[in-house]
Amino acid sequence: MPATVTTDKVEQTIVSALAELGPERDEITRDATFEQLDIDSLDLVEVAQVIEEEFGVEIKGEEAEKLNTVGDAIDLVVAKAS
């Protein structure tokens, strides 16, 4: 069963997943853009895999393309999970 989805939990998961991909943890704020973090579409697929595993939420390619900031991604996952 997927874990209970809270904004905090989603944020934690996404920040950890991004930190695995290169950026320093303190750079990864809600307002940071993926461009600033040097996170590209290939990286976002990896993040989406972690999200699906944790929360059972699938992020489609066209949804991922619209994400600019870390906050956008958190909000999308929370919205889709509720």
Binding site: S41, L42, V45, E46, Q49, E52
Partner: peptide, 10 residues
């Protein structure tokens, strides 16, 4: 298949 990395090909 869903767990295969997007980086696999490159």
């Amino acid at each position: 298949a869903k767990k295969v990395s997007a980086l696999a090909v490159p």
